[in-house]
Design a protein around this nucleic acid. Structure first.
Length: 928
RNA sequence: GCGCGAUUAGCUCAGCGGUAGAGCGCCUGCCUUACAAGCAGGAUGUCGCUGGUUCGAACCCGGCAUCGCGCACCA
């Protein structure tokens, strides 16, 4: 390849071109029968209503880095994408639209409403999918799934039926969290507590005996209408005598008992609690213990019902005011306190939920959770394994003392519950007591119902009506790792090949909602945990450390950053920011200009790689890594052996990091290796050898050409491997550059190449250490030149003085490199004795370790600056001497520290002393 | 109330027993034919506070403080 690349990297065209090429070629569409150890990931399905936010981009960057790495490792990788149907969210949006037209969903009817929902899904559901594509996600789009598609629906129906057969799903009337805004029950997890400034109203309830009043307090006066008792602590002496007596409930006139219950805290308030079993979970429990009646005073829309008497029809918050006013009018209001307390809010509806007695479907979770707890505690190792490990405790704690899961929703958009009411038994209506059958479909339901209800007294034909309610979206999401692979068809090829999945990658905010639901359901249906590892990552926070969210309006649109810097840059920035411990990441961002220094730095890195490859293309003489072949070990120069050792080491480290979810470390390590060691040192060192001077002839020319070839081989190998290693992090750029470098045809992909083998023979610790010294020596010369005020293009003689033979040898061997990188006019390496013998001319000097660097020139430089430099060196050495000598003087140190540490300390001291001495002499040389 | 995490250079974060690092920003000099989205050089820290363990602590242990998160929740 000799085609010149443009001077800087332009991501837009490159990225879309490779995305299309990958997808249309089916590069990421694996065959279950193909070779390779299976590796599978199902992506957390984003909400179909949504658009891409930074959390998706982050999650995607992490997953794609992992799966691209595993693909390079030769695994048979399936990464399966999809979306979820977001029952409540979608329904809320549609109902809002209808409301704007002055209609409700009932006006449309179920069928028409669902048609509308599907149409809307078709229209907006593609948005996020298209955005995921723009990130370069290497998923198998041919296997894309949707939680409401036919396969997932079959799985949901099957799952519901099996759980029901096993007695793990039941229907019953319980207190549930009712969201009046969406008109549906919600599960405990969909409720979040919020601190609210409210009031604590103190009311007096008169004793029926007429012997006074008891004072109770409440934050929800409207529930008073449903009170069926007042409770006190059984050990409370103040009220012991009153237990068993009755009170007259004000406004209502009902006689309600005084009961003794441990739940009541005698020290809080008056120690008396009004009990409303139909409207409060704690009161419900008290009611159960004392057999109290349940009086529901509120309707499902949040208004008061007939049981609320004269308050019927009022909204719950109006009723609150009205009840307070009425109580005050009756003289029963003792006092009102300002009171800050927690109120349960509906996650979706954003209104306070109402605990309401209602008949719903529930999953009996304890047996499912027990299986998960056992897997987690298994002797063979935690299953699944959480990374970072601390999250397993959060997961386990939640699975302990778990409450049953309310799975029915009074919604239409979703999986309709596969239960049919035998309405012929109840005169055509569905009541809480209508018998029902659970079945896979209506004909099976009919058969079941006929077997149960026809014959004998039931001479009439059965009439069935399917339960109108839908299931919690999480019920179908909970089947995602296996429903997407073909379950309940247990013979499905994908299921056999890729289940259980290898790793689930998701945010910690979703452990209960999703991770635990998946493990519970997978345990029940597949007998296995659905993934081996769970990699939990943090959240992306904004520049002020706030969680990014749509409602807070502080989201950063990933697409703006992609447009400005490229998808690779965004991905790299996100992954590079990941701390090893799964911390939240903070993304800097300037809202005025849509810029981010972090992403810009990643873009600059991409550009650096672009230019390094560009340099290679200009210097490989039209050859490729393949045509050049491996360099001959005997022909390698010091710098070659060094970078090849580094390459082998970085290869090994990087693979380990990718493999163990150390993605941030992998990214940082490669960034530093590529920029510092490859670009700043190796390429600079190779330049000299890649250019063969035209005036060379004969043997010299031959030698130079041979060395040029070695240099080309090293450069080609280095870049070729580097691009593979970077590919999981910068997929588009690396694909583009790899094609440029190798000249491979467009239909061959870097994404499908094998990870290069570690060249173990190249590893050389001693060499790496020596080379570090060489680099340091060059730095010292450059620094000295800078301090002395030499112009960058001005050359000067360089003299090294060292007593250490190995160091001298390295300096000798690399003299041509040093000359090139320091603009040395001439270069000599002397031992101290020889240096003493040399004429004592005035010299610029710097001392570093066991090395003195001298620039013996006069008259051109700023001697004061140089004296300052030497004085600084002396002060530094003296500080070091003081510290080290102090340590060594401590008898405890010499006695207790490991000998090698003591020896090292002594060596350092000797070196520092020598350094100080040398620096003082050079200072003296300069004169006053 | 119970639990978890964070606290290191101006900013974002690594380091997790042998006396502190990176990127960005900052200062100086360079358009040196890969790259000014760059190159070379430079400055910058009582590692939250406080006890303890240790020859030695940013790192281990105890307490405290601040910030953040999760779970539970008293009417």
């Amino acid at each position: 390849m000799t085609e010149a690349l443009p001077k800087s990297y332009d991501p837009a065209g490159t990225e879309s071109r490779w995305q299309q090429a990958w997808e249309s070629s089916g590069a990421f569409h694996p065959d279950p029968a193909a070779q390779g150890e299976p590796f599978s990931v199902v992506i957390p399905p984003p909400n179909v209503t949504g658009s891409l936010h930074m959390g998706h981009a982050f999650n995607t960057a992490l997953i794609d880095t992992i799966v691209r790495f595993q693909r390079l490792r030769g695994k048979n990788v399936l990464c399966l994408p999809g979306t979820d149907h977001a029952s409540i969210a979608v329904q809320t949006i549609l109902e809002k639209q209808l409301k704007a037209e002055g209609r409700g969903k009932e006006d449309l009817g179920r069928e028409a409403f669902l048609e509308k929902a599907w149409a809307w899904k078709a229209e907006s559901g593609g948005t996020i999918v298209g955005q995921l594509r723009r990130l370069g996600y290497s998923v198998d789009w041919q296997r894309e799934r949707f939680t409401l598609d036919s396969g997932c629906s079959v799985a949901v129906i099957e799952a519901f039926n099996r759980l029901h057969e096993q007695g793990l799903i039941y229907r019953g009337e319980y207190l549930v969290n009712w969201c009046p805004a969406s008109g549906s029950a919600v599960s405990d997890l969909e409720v979040e507590m919020q601190e609210v400034d409210g009031h604590l109203w103190h009311f007096r309830y008169p004793l029926s005996s007429g012997a006074g009043c008891l004072e109770v307090a409440t934050t929800r006066p409207e529930t008073l209408l449903g009170d069926t008792a007042v409770a006190v602590n059984p050990k409370d002496p103040r009220y012991a005598a009153l237990v068993g007596q009755t009170l007259t409930l004000p406004l209502v006139g009902r006689q309600i008992p005084i009961v003794a219950d441990d739940h009541v805290d005698a020290d809080f308030g008056t120690g008396c609690v009004k009990v409303t079993p139909a409207h409060d979970p704690n009161d419900f429990a008290i009611g159960q213990r004392h057999n109290l009646p349940l009086i529901t005073v509120m309707a499902k829309d949040g208004s008061m019902n007939e049981a609320a008497g004269r308050f019927a029809g009022l909204d719950r918050f109006e009723a609150r005011q009205a009840v307070v006013a009425a109580m005050e009018a009756e003289g029963c209001l003792a006092r009102v306190e300002e009171y800050r307390h927690s109120v349960p809010f509906s996650d979706r509806g954003k209104v306070p939920v109402e605990p309401l007695l209602s008949t719903q479907w529930f999953v009996r979770t304890e047996p499912l959770a027990a299986r998960c707890r056992e897997a987690l505690a298994a002797a063979a190792g935690s299953d699944p394994r959480f990374v970072p490990q601390r999250w397993s405790k959060v997961y386990r704690d939640w699975l302990t003392d778990i409450r049953d899961w309310c799975i029915s929703r009074q919604l239409w958009w979703g999986h309709r519950i596969p239960a049919w009411f035998v309405v012929s038994e109840t005169g055509g209506v569905i009541t809480d007591n209508t018998p029902y059958v659970v079945a896979r479909d209506e004909s099976e339901a009919r058969a079941k119902a006929e077997a149960q209800f026809v014959g004998g007294v039931h001479a009439h034909p059965v009439v069935l009506e399917q339960d109108p309610d839908a299931l919690d979206t999480w019920f179908s999401s909970g089947l995602w790792p296996f429903s997407t692979l073909g379950w309940p068809d247990e013979q499905a090829a994908d299921l056999a090949r890729w289940y259980p999945t290898s790793v689930l990658v998701t945010g910690f905010d979703i452990i209960f909602f999703w991770v635990a639901r998946m493990t519970m359901l997978a345990g029940a249906f597949t007998g296995q945990m659905p993934f081996k590892d769970v990699y939990i990552h943090g959240l992306v926070r904004d520049e002020q450390n706030r969680k990014m969210s749509k409602s807070a309006g502080n989201g950063i649109d990933p697409l703006l950053l992609i447009e400005r810097y490229g998808a690779d840059a965004l991905r790299f920035a996100l992954v590079r920011e990941v701390a090893g411990a799964g911390q939240d990441i903070r993304l800097d961002y300037d809202r005025k200009s849509d810029t981010s220094a972090t992403v810009e730095a990643a873009r600059n890195f991409a550009n650096k790689l672009w230019n390094a490859t560009r340099f290679a293309l200009m210097n490989l003489g039209g050859e490729t890594p393949a045509s050049l072949g491996e360099p001959d070990p005997a022909a390698l120069q010091l710098a070659d052996r060094w970078i090849l050792s580094r390459l082998a080491r970085v290869n090994r480290e990087t693979a380990e990091r990718y493999d163990s979810y150390g993605l941030g470390e992998a990214a940082k390590g490669l960034y530093e290796f590529a920029w510092n060691e490859v670009c700043d040192w190796t390429i600079e060192l190779l330049k000299r050898r890649l250019q063969v001077p035209v005036n060379l002839e004969g043997a010299a020319r031959k030698a130079a050409l041979a060395d040029q070839r070695t240099a080309r081989q090293v450069l080609a190998k280095l870049l070729g491997e580097l691009l593979v290693m970077l590919h999981p992090l910068l997929p588009h750029l690396s694909e583009e550059l790899w094609h440029g470098l190798t000249g491979e045809p467009p239909e061959t992909f870097l994404a499908l190449q094998p990870w290069p083998a570690v060249n173990v023979a190249a590893l050389d610790d001693d060499l790496e250490a020596s080379f570090a010294e060489l680099i340091e020596a060059i730095r010292v010369v450059r620094n000295l030149r800078a301090v002395a005020g030499l112009k960058p293009n001005q050359s000067a003689p360089v003299r090294f003085v060292t007593g250490r033979g190995e160091l001298a040898a390295v300096l000798q061997e690399a003299s041509a490199d040093i000359t090139a990188l320091t603009r040395a006019e001439s270069l000599v390496v002397l031992d101290p004795a020889a240096a003493e013998a040399a004429p004592g001319q005035r010299a610029l000097a710097s001392v570093s370790g066991e090395l003195q660097v001298l620039l013996p020139i006069e008259g051109l430089v700023d001697l004061d600056a140089l004296r300052g430099r030497l004085e600084k060196d002396i002060a530094k050495a003296d500080r070091e001497i003081k510290g080290l000598a102090g340590r060594l003087a401590n008898p405890n140190f010499a006695g207790k520290a490991p000998p090698e540490v003591v020896a090292e300390c002594q060596a350092n001291l000797a070196e520092a002393e020598a350094q100080a001495e040398l620096a003082r002499r050079r200072l003296a040389d300069l004169g006053a």
